[in-house]
Amino acid sequence: MSEEIKVKKTAAMQEVEDKMTMLVQTGRLDNLIDVLAVVSDQIEMTTTPIVEKMVHSIDNIASAGFVTENAVRYAKRESAKNEVPSLFGMLKLLKDEETRKGLAFMLHLTKGIGKQM
């Protein structure tokens, strides 16, 4: 024999019931449960070392983006300020230590890529 239980619903409980009813009636609830299950499984299977490695990769990408953006803005500003250099002007640019540092970096970068080809 089933028992009748009276529950006094709060407005919040009624709202949840209405919204859930709508999800059941429109056939969406099963899909949502599947989605939640997948999300939950992902959280369950993820470990701190996995997150550390992912985060490290994101940090590398962000750092590379920051360095590149800085350099591009600088180059744009300098290019706008100065005329296109002559061949001799090019050599003068190469006298600058920071330019040489950057160029050497690019050459090492090229080698780094070459090593992987």
């Binding site: 701190t48 985060v55 962000a62 750092s63 920051f66």
Partner: peptide, 23 residues
Amino acid sequence: SKLGSFVRLGFNKSLYWAAARGM
């Protein structure tokens, strides 16, 4: 939550530096 802990870890090891850089 465990997820909250992962977000915190993400902040400690990466997002903090992006925030400091104004990204």
